[in-house]
Write a protein that binds this DNA or RNA. Structure first.
Lengths: 123, 123
DNA sequence: GCAATAGGGGATAAATTTATCCCTATGTGA
DNA sequence: TCACATAGGGATAAATTTATCCCCTATTGC
């Protein structure tokens, strides 16, 4: 496992929430788990741009940060279910606010994001 | 300047907001600019863990994404002021929600973040 | 002339995060 | 016997982000 070489910033609330939510797929993992998509294979289907590996890694971090719990059923083929902890559930309204802002401004956002991407690509 | 090799995900609102807010200091930059700390040197003082260079880079991205505007006064020594655009201002309540959650849970967050950091450091 | 001020940015290195590849396990059904 | 489903994870590579270093501008005040 990768071993961090610099220490995290833990000064203010924004630092702290950043530490647990920073990760390409974490927010969406929390969101989809809350929506009832609990099994790894389901989550992978909901987030097809991610690989199985990264999702596992990020789910493990969410678990270490006590935002989700993992339940392994001793059956074959294996069955695993993730759920939000009570702590994790308190994040859902915040994530909802993020998603709403993104949805409400999607046209403009696509526009400015692509504009920047294109102009940097053309040397 | 670094040139992206993979294309951004622009599927849902969460992807979109991620594209513009993802960056170690961006959220705090927006927050402090909104609080009236507009000059680069002030922002650097408010965020002492960042270097001048990164703040410039991330401010440029925020500008390209139309969340802030930059005003350069033609004086010597140079004076520069950043302000939120109307679009950028609409993000403030969302950022406020993030910060509030982080503040409200700061003890627990410090705890779980450090727990993970320490256990991974010890092999 | 030299330092200080306030802000910029290129080049490169280091850190961090994601992606790829590949191998493991165990019943079930063809 | 072989493929399939379902989940896990090590090793390594590639992509991306941050950090370091160093140099530049122009004026004011010693």
């Amino acid at each position: 496992m990768y071993e961090r070489k610099t220490s995290p910033n833990l000064n203010c609330g924004l630092d702290l929430i950043g530490e647990v939510l920073y990760g390409k797929w974490k927010i969406r993992l929390l969101w989809f788990i809350d929506q009832g998509h609990k099994r790894p294979s389901e989550l992978l289907r909901k987030i097809p741009d991610a690989t199985r590996r990264v999702l596992n890694v990020q789910l493990k971090e969410l678990e270490d940060h006590e935002l989700v719990t993992k339940k392994i059923y001793p059956v074959v083929p294996p069955k695993v279910e993730y759920s939000l902890t009570e702590f994790g559930k308190t994040l859902i309204p915040v994530i909802g606010a993020l998603g709403q802002w993104g949805d409400a401004n999607q046209d403009r956002l696509r526009d400015v994001i692509l504009k920047r991407a294109v102009s940097s690509a053309s040397h």
